[in-house]
């Protein structure tokens, strides 16, 4: 039998889905906010081969890059509270899991970005008598950041996609809300089609921004 699609009934629940979408964005923002400082510090440590700290950074980065986001989320949600003896909200648990994993990816991005700056820049800064942190802060990082920003946006896309897993541990983001809507109207395919379209619209635009930035920064450097 041909299925008769009915989007109109699902569209009535659009505000609820968009509300879930807003939570997705909030959660992603929190994950990024946690990932950026850790990622930058680890990336610098890796690039500068800081003694004692660099091997620790390698272990951290390799562990999080090869671990599975959903497993980390389950671990932080079910296991971490037992270990710490405190209650964690789903928001906190998921932010820790995805934020830490994203920081590992970001660290590799920062390391590659710093590595792409020619040694001449370091030498010139040293010739001006700048100390190490100042060289990094005023000469190297601003140039490296410019090259990292397009890839950073792609990382943001990945983080947003990963936060949809938070619904599994009952955080009310878009997939969770879509489940609630679909049980209410009994139209799962239409509901998840619309949820997918909302995600697509958001992520596609983010991806385009990344492409545009990449082209613009590439033009500046030429």
């Amino acid at each position: 039998m041909p299925y008769d699609w009915n989007f109109s009934i699902v569209l009535q629940y659009m505000p609820q889905l968009l509300w879930g979408g807003l939570h997705t964005v909030l959660l992603s923002a929190a994950c990024i906010a946690l990932a950026v400082p850790i990622g930058v510090v680890l990336g610098v440590i890796r690039h500068q081969r800081v003694r004692f700290l660099a091997p620790i950074a390698v272990v951290y980065i390799d562990f999080f890059r090869t671990s599975v986001a959903l497993v980390l989320i389950c671990w932080c949600y079910y296991a971490l509270p037992i270990l710490l003896g405190v209650n964690l909200s789903t928001f906190t648990a998921v932010t820790i899991a995805i934020g830490l994993q994203a920081s590992a990816y970001l660290a590799e991005l920062v390391r590659a970005g710093l590595g792409s700056i020619s040694t001449g820049q370091w030498e010139a800064a040293r010739a001006l008598g700048m100390p190490g942190t100042m060289r990094l802060r005023y000469i190297i990082l601003p140039q490296a950041a410019r090259r990292m920003i397009p890839v950073f946006f792609l990382l943001v896309v990945e983080v947003v996609k990963t936060t949809t897993l938070a619904g599994i541990v009952t955080y009310p983001e878009i997939v969770y809300e879509a489940f609630r809507v679909s049980t209410e109207v009994y139209r799962p395919v239409e509901t998840f089609t619309i949820a997918g379209l909302i995600c697509f619209a958001f992520l596609f635009v983010t991806g385009r921004i990344a492409m545009r930035l990449e082209r613009r920064y590439a033009a500046v450097e030429r």
Binding site: K161, T164, L165, P188
Partner: peptide, 17 residues
Amino acid sequence: NTPGLIQLIWFYYAIPM
């Protein structure tokens, strides 16, 4: 540009249909 989880759930419901 869509999350894998949404795709999976979508196929789970759409294939029987």
